[in-house]
């Protein structure tokens, strides 16, 4: 096999692993943000934010 094959495969594998890593971190973040928004929507808030709302009243 030519050197080009090993170079292309090296960069290809590195790009694939980095792309999967970025995708996984991004999807994980999107999932958690949606869960927090869902909890907010049904009225479950963090104690600190409940306290700050009470203080505002």
């Amino acid at each position: 096999m030519s050197h080009t094959f090993y170079i292309a495969l090296s960069y290809g594998i590195a790009a694939l692993i980095v792309a999967l890593l970025i995708l996984w971190v991004w999807l994980d973040g999107r999932g958690r943000r949606r869960e927090l928004e869902e909890l907010e929507r049904v009225g479950v808030r963090r104690r600190s934010s409940v306290a700050s709302v009470d203080e505002a009243r």
Binding site: V25, D28, G29, R32, R33, E35, L36, L39, V44, R45, R46
Partner: peptide
């Protein structure tokens, strides 16, 4: 993401 995960769990 991990901070958000813990907040979801706590809430």
């Amino acid at each position: 993401n991990e901070i958000w995960r813990r907040r979801v769990g706590a809430q």
